[in-house]
Design a protein around this nucleic acid. Sequence first.
DNA 1: CATGGCGGCCAA
DNA 2: TTGGCCGC
Length: 802
Amino acid sequence: MDQDNRVVVLIDMDCFYCQVEEKMNPELRGKPIAVVQYNPWKGGGIIAVNYVARAQGVGRHMRGDEAKEKCPDIVLPSVPCLRGKADISKYREAGKEVARVLQKFSPLLERASIDEAYLDITAPVQERLKTLNVNTIHSGMMPNTFALGYDCVDEFLADVHTCGIENMEFDYEHAKRLLVGAVIVSEIRAAVYEETGYRCSAGIAHNKILAKLVCGMNKPNKQTVLPKHCIDLLYSTLPLKKVKHLGGKFGFTVCEMLKIQKMGELQKFSEKDLQARFDEKNGTWLYNIARGIDLEPVQAKFNPKSIGCCKNFKGKAALLDLESVRRWLKDLGDEIDDRLDQDALENNRTPKQMVLSYSIQLPDGRDQSSSRSYNFVAEDELCGELFSSKALELLLESSEGVKAIEGEGNRRLKAPIKFLGISVGKFEDLTEVKKTKKILDYFCAGSSKDAAKPKQNIKEKATNEPAVVKNKVTNKNEGKEYVMQKFFQVCEKPQTSKVESLPKQNLDHSNKTNNAAVIESSLDKQESFFAKILNQNKDPPSVSRIRDSELDVEKIRTTTPVCDVVTYGEDSNDTYYSGSTIVDEINTSMALFEDDPKDVARVKNIRDLLSSSRIVKEDSDTASETEQNTDAVAPDIPQNEPQVDTFNCLECRKIIPLDAVAEHSDYHLALKLREEERQQVRKEKEERNSAVKPKQNEETKKKKQPEEQNSSRNEITSSIASFLVKIDENAPTETCSECGKKVPLARFGEHLDFHEAQKLNRELNKKTNPSFTGSSVKRKRKSNSPVKKNKMPCRPIDSFFR
DNA sequence: CATGGCGGCCAA
DNA sequence: TTGGCCGC
């Protein structure tokens, strides 16, 4: 049986939350610790205990206070609170960090929880067997390894070396595979420790259930192999409920109905019998697992399929009035929003559905839970407010006497609410346009974004945990401004100017002075969002370079397959996803504009940014010590100028107060985007009069998907123009509610994206409106203004200046 | 009041 | 689509 020839591993992090705390605070190492959440009540609930504390009798299912009694010197790090609830994002990030290491060893990685992952290493084992002589394997190659059924691993080794001649059950090939598997798992665990500092345990067997089963048998920092011929031995004493899926009610009824306790006793029953008692599927499953057979494949799955958050309101804390429900839903919605933002950046995906879950207390005192789902529609702007308001609607619509009692301003609820949860799922891949929007959001919002959108409505904050993750991107928030500055600098540079702001490696192998060419060369290696834009600027720079380097949505689109709604397979989840994520693109963009990585790391504020990018020179009489070639920009900089901090905009030559730099950059970007929109309209008009000739795509010198290169060649231009005009009389069409145009059904998704791009433009325009200066700029959200067709919905440019 | 906050899967 | 179960 092919399934039995696998080598499956379960990696399980040892008391993971504790390890995360220990890593963050090395003082804690060697001390007894337990991670708690919500410490106010009896010291908080313990959710993880390290092994020092376990040795002193501290266990899970204890309160912090109990732990203190058992172990007075225990340290109790607390899970941070955000918006009034436990925030486990740092553990989530740590789990991802580990999984990324595991992924290097096999693409067949299935994340089972925040701290557990299955790996199918059948292929790596086969590979290793080609070069590794099994007889040379010794226990030194796999420290901390145990073989179930053997007193020590050396005995198992001996069995393998002698082909297990003493045991009829011994399957030599199988044992060899597991042995080599154990060697590889040792290497995996060493790599995890080396690269993350975390220790883990592992189970090695020929399927998931068994790997999981034995993983926990030797902990911490150990690994356990379960050879087939030892299964019965193990099962003879193993309580049935220890097996995954049998730990709950089902396992209990199995034990009850069959009057058995041990796993081994299951073998006494025929498959038919088991099917008759339970159901066909369960019967077969039980029959198989009793014989160590589990056919479940390890699925390549890295990302969760849903993102949710919830909160209990126990006892007196139960919600009694509408207003508190509203408040909590808002917090839950905001958290979802934050996590979705990050998820979109990392995984290029967006959810199609949300689910509200709740439970109420019935008059008889028991709880009753329920849930209602909502499928997003195109007009929905996914944001915290949408989530919370939809959730409230769903809650009030739902039949169960949740409705507020009339009168008294709808204040009181009929039944106390004990639990609220919002989750989103059914992800689909983001289209290129939406991706573009996200990237621009990221860069353009600049410092004003965080101030504008009070994302973290922090009710309590136990620690000053950075709310957003610590991946490369978010660490470099300060770099955003820098990149924008660089971007405009590059766009603006006269043809003849030096390219000193571009990456060094590009200077090396090129005597071209043309920016586009330099950037183009950087595309050999990688492509960034900005590179895409800049790369389109093949024409000689003109007065309005920005316009020439238009953000041409259609051109960007052609770099990826033409489909708006990529039907959701496992694409967004699996380990094979090969497209560049938004995070990739942002990081590449960053890299593209970094003179030296240290510069960006060093940058702490706008002033540093500007001086390091040589744009600003306040106190400029002493400034030339840093560089001699300030003259690249110097002519326009008022040398003996100001007491105030200003900088001279390369774009318009105006002197801009430092504190308005971000907005000013946004303004130029808005100009650029607006021009793009104009051109779209122009194009639209032109093409209404003349037939469209599908234009040949530029040579795309990117690896990407191979099919894509073929298809892009023989047309499939996803040009906006093409779907605005070309209407096949016979093809089904749909009338766009935004602009009233008839659009071929096949192109309708793209058409909607076009409007999306328009909205983006408008929002950027709003963002640059100086009347909202400073911190109170509302970030995107709520664009319910209808589109006026054929009319520029922008303000006059001049109005941007006071 | 008292593990809580997740997440996955599946039957109906 | 919903409710329930399972497990970390």
